[in-house]
Design a protein around this nucleic acid. Structure first.
Lengths: 336, 336
DNA sequence: TTGTAAGCGTTATCAA
DNA sequence: TTGATAACGCTTACAA
């Protein structure tokens, strides 16, 4: 059954020509005999010859593979993002080596190692929520493998990254809430380590101050994204003497858990207490209590842009220009 | 800036030993001098040596990469499945080359080609809903690359596959509906070409007959999974003279669209008309009208089993045993 | 205990 | 127009 894959050598042997001739014939090299070319192509077709990319890549020191590491593909945000990445890579005949960190720093290090060993030509990553150190990724740079971060990006300037300016988005959100007459605005933020959390907080502060609203730190809660943690955050907010009039959740998943918690506590969701969120995912459309407003973060576009930046870097490898590319998308407030 | 990745040769040169010694030292070959071993390892560490897997794989004629082709990772079903696959591959130091067919046959062919060129060691695939011909996948067999299908599997016997026995599941569902006193049971099935659709229909027929219920083909609708198509199916059912008492949707996404449609038509969902479904996805828990019952299809387990079968095949490559492995999971009816 | 050399499949360079 | 050869990085039989 094992009809082995023919190699150039075999074709050469059967045709009594040299391997290089076969190679050239298959590549339509200009100065190769027409007859030879045809003979070679014919036999190659019959034998079902397939060039061995492993060998080619090995020789070229390229793999035509880019690594993609995401916290969790189950989140619609990331599944959309990877589709954006895929849209770009397909065009360039690149493929995607995929792995999840499951928001676990150790796993992120391990899968990064694996991808490094696999010699991916480039890496696109959205950091795990636990990640603070970046040695495992700095290592790529040393090997001259470009790394592009997106969405969950490091704070510093010394990296290529794509993200949504959540500060701006949050300011806009508060602006809208204020215009609706709401002044006691709470936020359930993500883990402090996340850059995205810092941005949200900064936007929260700035937005409140712009409208001369007092910032009450009791209104600032935090979740590690587990349902329990979000439940606790909601509990805390609902046990305050002065109840909040609106809750901004870190994203739509937190939002859904927050609503669940609020309903248990008999809150009249979006009547007594307005829930708003980030991400603007499709699934909220099917839920009982979608957020009254959500900030669209364009995951597909973020993925696409990250991939585009990566290819830009790959094509300028020898380029001495060592500046970093940083793109910020302007999020859009979507009312529901 | 380009500190190039050191190779075995360089280490050998700097240490005035041969490349083979370095290779053996790094692999803890038993009969290599302790001192040499240490010297080599030390320098390798200092230089940040990383074995070039490309070269190793090239030599071993293996890639330690398996291809995974899914219709759409945005569906929770498939994102759970790939996590199951990943759980297995990680243990064996394999990585996943990932691509989506977007339920487009042509795309499926293209990405399959790409993976073949990349010489994946094996392939796991869930077919696009358009796929009827399998040449693009037969080609893998000829190259001795094992292929394992899961969930959306071909009908024939001549392949390795994992799926949930949806016939059994559907019979069980009808059994339960009957026990709830419902007799006019409609089904919104998927495209006829899908094996999964055939199984559901077979189960529907059998279930109805078991309970001596008349099978009325007007109660059997079909959707191509688009919201419009599902809307039309629901419309048709609701315009029947004798209205159905229950609707079985192909999966939870169809279910959600079906409910949306029914609500537009002023149906009292799950009161006048009971909605049940397949998949038992988490997201339905957040929706206003989760299915009254859903058939758990164990996507994570299916992915895991498919990967396990694949590794079994990879480890028995020379094995002459050419029988096909076919696994069926028994789905579970989950009441909500 | 270590070194030498061949080989994996392909392509590029040089020579014929 | 075609052929011979070397090279990519690594492993491994065989030789020393």
């Amino acid at each position: 059954m094992a009809k082995p894959i023919p190699t150039i050598k075999e074709i050469a042997r059967k045709l009594n020509v040299s391997a290089s001739t076969v190679s050239r014939a298959l590549h339509d090299h200009p100065r190769i005999g027409l007859k030879t070319k045809e003979r070679v192509k014919k036999l190659a077709g019959e034998l079902g010859y397939e060039p061995n990319s492993q060998a080619i890549f090995f020789k070229q020191q390229k793999t035509f593979v880019i690594g993609v590491i995401l916290p969790s593909i189950r989140e619609e945000f990331f599944s959309q993002a990877i589709s954006g990445i895929e849209a770009v890579t397909t065009q360039s005949d690149y493929t995607i080596l995929f792995a999840q960190s499951y928001d676990d720093y150790k796993r992120e290090v391990i899968v990064a190692e694996t991808m490094k060993r696999q010699r991916v030509d480039g890496l696109i990553i959205s950091l795990s929520k636990e990640t603070t150190k970046l040695q495992h990724l700095e290592a790529f740079k040393e090997m001259n493998i470009p790394v592009v971060y997106f969405d969950r990006v490091p704070a510093g300037d010394a990296c290529h990254k794509v993200s949504c300016n959540m500060k701006t988005g949050t300011v806009e959100m508060i602006h809208w809430l204020f215009s609706e007459g709401l002044k006691r605005i709470a936020i359930i933020n993500g883990p402090k380590a996340l850059f995205a959390s810092k941005e949200r907080l900064a936007g929260y502060m700035e937005g409140m101050q712009q409208h001369k609203l007092k910032v009450d730190m009791q209104l600032v809660e935090e979740t590690d994204f587990s349902e329990d943690s979000t439940y606790k955050a909601v509990s805390n907010l609902l046990s305050l003497k002065k109840l909040p009039q609106a809750i901004i959740s870190f994203n739509d998943y937190v939002h859904m858990d927050a609503v669940k918690a609020a309903l248990k506590k008999k809150v009249k969701v979006n009547r007594d207490l307005l829930f708003v969120s980030y991400s603007n995912l499709n699934i909220t459309g099917y839920t009982s209590y979608p957020p009254a407003a959500s900030i669209e973060q364009y995951p597909y576009e973020q993925g696409k842009m990250a991939a585009e930046i990566l290819f830009q870097l790959l094509n300028n490898k020898q380029n001495t220009d060592q500046s970093y590319i940083r793109q910020q998308l302007i999020p859009k407030l979507v009312l529901h």
